Amino acid sequence: MKKDHPLTRRRALIAGAAVLGAAGAAGTARFLTAEPATKPVRSLPPVSGPQARRALRPSAYRLEPMAGYGPPRHTPVRTVVRHEPFLRMSGRGRTMVLTFDDGPDPHYTPSILRTLRKYDVRAMFFVCGEMALENKGLLGEMADDGHIVGNHTWTHPLLTKLSRSAIHSEIERTCEVIDDAYGEPPVWFRAPYGAWNRATFQIGAELGMEPLAWTVDSLDWTTPGTGTITDRVESGAAPGVVILSHDAGGDRSQTVRALRDYLPQLLDSGYHITVPRRKFT
């Protein structure tokens, strides 16, 4: 029998200030439902935007959810099978999303959570099942702090090289451990290496998840230096962008330090760091 999970202040509903969607300007992402992707999705070059280091007057605004903490009143619509992942989000004002892949890692993830907690900011963590299984307590912290936990497969394989049954196993097993540790099943999925195919989109939708990629890649996994990571995030800052970083998979000390540098700069420059919210009928 599935055990009951205590209702924390954010576990029942992870609310955000915007829903992932289309950006109207040329060259930006849209609702991606036109044609199937024929090759793996690659991260886009940094989007031009205001330099966050040119700080405006400090703002007390951090994140104001659009919804309360209670459970959703309606059943989610059946997940549509997409042909491409979402790359950006739409919303009012200068909203951005921070995402972290490959964890949770017992050494680096807690530091990232502490920094996010200090500034009362929510983020998305795309976790690998084998890491989540060994660090369930960190998923509980993410739930309590209002972060969104997404599915990043069990072992981080190149899904386009696997059979359909193997893809299903990688994704479904991770859904189960997230449901157990986080308190609810994931509703977002990210393919390792940004490599998607038809089976990946279909299986993700069957399991109730929407596909999310990214707009700006910090390339922190190359360990280019704290300053370089900070510069890439700040130079790519713009309304609607989704930032990709990592909290596991190697030495992520530079990522931890960079977050401490750029997060207060972005907030004081007027950016709203938020999380997406699924639409309900």
Results as ranks from 00 to 15, higher is better:
Pro185Arg: 09
Asn151Phe: 15
Pro239Phe: 01
Ser269Leu: 00
Thr200Pro: 06
Ala12Cys: 15
Ala26Asn: 05
Glu84Gly: 14
Leu159Tyr: 15
Asp101Leu: 10
Leu32Ala: 14
Pro58Asn: 03
Arg190Ile: 14
Ala26Gly: 08
Pro106Met: 06
Ile167Asp: 02
Asp102Tyr: 11
Phe100Cys: 07
Gly91Ser: 10
Tyr182Ala: 04
Gly183Pro: 10
Gly21Ala: 08
Val80Cys: 07
Ala26Thr: 05
Leu44Trp: 08
Phe100Pro: 08
Pro50Ser: 05
Asp4His: 12
Arg78Gln: 12
Val47Gly: 10
Phe126Pro: 11
Ile171Ser: 12
Pro192Leu: 09
Lys279Asn: 08
Ser163Gly: 13
Pro65Lys: 03
Asp217Tyr: 01
Lys161His: 13
Trp154Thr: 15
Gly249Ile: 04
Trp188Lys: 05
Ile229Ser: 09
Val177Gln: 02
Leu32Pro: 14
Arg114Ser: 10
Ser245Arg: 02
Trp154Leu: 12
Arg42Thr: 15
Asp220Val: 02
Pro72Tyr: 06
His246Phe: 05
Pro85Phe: 13
Pro45Tyr: 01
Gly194His: 03
His74Asp: 13
Ile148His: 00
Asp144Asn: 11
Thr230Gly: 03
Arg94Cys: 03
Asp102Cys: 11
Leu158Val: 10
Ser43Pro: 07
Leu133Ser: 13
Pro276Ile: 04
Arg88Tyr: 14
Thr200Arg: 02
Met131Cys: 12
Thr38Ser: 14
His156Tyr: 11
Asp4Glu: 13
His147Gln: 03
Pro72His: 10
Ala123Arg: 00
Pro211Glu: 10
Glu134Pro: 09
Gln51Thr: 00
Val81Cys: 14
Ile229Asn: 07
Asp261Lys: 11
